[in-house]
C-alpha cells in the first residue's frame, strides 16, 4: 500500500476520507495564526535511538501507566486540525474521547502513539508523556512507543495471511521480541480478549475466517500480546453488531485494571457504560481546528456539564 497515495488524497481533500481521520470538512489553507509560539515538529525526522529500555519499565511488566498530553496541536500540511489540547489519561481509568465527526479526536488519539506521523504531511506540536517520559523524545524509539501504547482500529484488521494463532503473535514477530512460552501467551491474550473459548479448537485457521466481532477481539488479543501499558481504541465497535459490541465492552472493562484505556466513540451510551472520564472535542466554527471543550469525570460530563455545548451534544441535540 502507499501512504503517498493517501497523502495525495488528503491534499486533494477527498471528502470520503475526512471521516476516517476526523478532519474538519473545510479546507482553506489557514495561515497558522494559532501556531505562534509553537514549533511544528517534523516528527518523521527525529532520529531513532538505539534500543534503550525505558526507565522503570520492562516489556513484561505490563503495568498501567498515566498518559499526559500537553498543548497538543496537529496539522495536515498547513491545515491545523487540533488546537492546544491537554489531557491526563490516568492509569487504571478508561478515558473516552467524544465529539462530532471531524473534531480531531481520532487525530488526537493517533498522536498518543505516534501513528499520526505515518501520514507524511502530518505534523504535531506539544508533548505527550508516558509516566513522565516524552514519547516524542530521544529516550524511546517510535517502535518502542507503539509497543508500549497499542492501538485497536475502527475496522477490524487481522492479517489475512496469518492464522489466528499467528495473528496473536504478530506483534512479537513484527517487533522482533522473544517469547518463551508462546502457547501460554496465545491462550492468555485470547482469554483476556474474550475469544479463547470460541477459537481454541481452530487456532490454525485464517484470521479472516472469523466474524467481524471476533476479528475485532482478535485484534485486541493481538495488541495485548506485546504487553502494552496503554491501549488506544479508535471507535472499536462502530463496525460491530450490538452483541459483539457488548462483548468488546466487557473485554474493555476486564482489561482496564491492567492497562490504561483511551477510547474514541460516537456512541454516548458506550461512553457512559465503559469510561471513567471523558473529554469532549469540538470544532467551534467551520475552518478552525478542533479543541477540547470540556473534560472530566464521565458522570459529571453527562449529568451536569459546565459547558452548554457539551450538554447539547451529550443529550443528542446535535452531532
Amino acid at each position: 500500500m502507499s501512504f503517498d497515495q493517501f497523502e495525495r488524497e488528503v491534499a486533494t481533500q477527498d471528502p470520503s476520507l475526512e471521516d476516517w481521520n476526523g478532519l474538519p470538512p473545510i479546507v482553506a489553507a489557514e495561515p497558522d495564526s494559532w501556531s505562534s509560539g509553537l514549533i511544528a515538529r517534523e516528527i518523521a525526522k527525529v532520529p531513532v535511538p538505539s534500543t534503550q529500555p525505558m526507565p522503570g519499565t520492562s516489556l513484561g511488566s505490563g503495568s498501567p501507566a498515566t498518559l499526559a498530553a500537553t498543548d497538543v496541536s496537529a496539522w495536515f500540511g498547513s491545515r491545523k486540525v487540533l488546537q492546544r489540547c491537554s489531557l491526563r489519561m490516568e492509569a487504571r481509568q478508561v478515558t473516552a474521547l467524544i465529539g462530532p465527526s471531524g473534531c480531531g479526536k481520532s487525530t488526537f488519539l493517533r498522536i498518543l502513539n505516534r501513528m499520526h506521523e505515518v501520514i507524511r504531511v502530518a505534523k504535531v506540536a506539544g508533548s505527550v508523556e508516558l509516566d513522565g517520559v516524552d514519547i516524542y523524545g530521544r529516550e524511546l524509539s517510535v517502535t518502542q512507543v507503539r509497543m508500549r501504547i497499542g492501538m485497536v482500529f475502527q475496522k477490524p484488521n487481522p492479517f489475512p495471511a496469518m492464522s489466528i494463532r499467528e495473528n496473536v503473535l504478530a506483534g512479537l514477530k513484527l517487533s522482533g521480541t522473544k517469547s518463551t512460552d508462546r502457547d501460554a501467551l496465545v491462550e492468555e491474550c485470547l482469554t483476556r480478549a474474550g475469544l479463547w473459548t470460541e477459537v481454541k479448537d481452530r487456532l490454525n485457521e485464517g484470521g479472516m475466517s472469523l466474524s467481524g466481532g471476533q476479528q475485532q477481539r482478535l485484534c485486541i488479543a493481538r495488541s495485548l500480546a506485546v504487553r502494552p501499558r496503554v491501549l488506544l481504541m479508535d471507535e472499536p465497535c462502530s463496525a460491530l453488531d450490538p452483541i459483539s459490541t457488548r462483548v468488546v465492552e466487557e473485554t474493555i472493562q476486564q482489561i482496564a485494571d491492567d492497562i490504561t484505556i483511551v477510547i474514541v466513540t460516537h456512541n454516548m451510551q458506550q461512553a457512559q457504560r465503559v469510561s471513567h472520564q471523558c473529554a469532549f472535542f469540538l470544532v467551534e466554527e467551520q475552518g478552525v481546528p478542533g479543541r477540547i471543550v470540556e473534560a472530566g469525570a464521565t458522570d459529571h460530563l453527562f449529568n451536569q456539564p459546565s459547558d452548554e455545548r457539551t450538554l447539547a451534544y451529550v443529550t443528542g441535540r446535535f452531532g
Partner: peptide
C-alpha cells in the same frame, strides 16, 4: 490495504 500496514506499525513493527 492501508489498515493492514497501520496495524503492523501500531504493533511496534518497523
Amino acid at each position: 490495504p492501508r489498515e493492514q500496514c497501520e496495524g503492523a506499525l501500531a504493533l511496534g513493527g518497523s
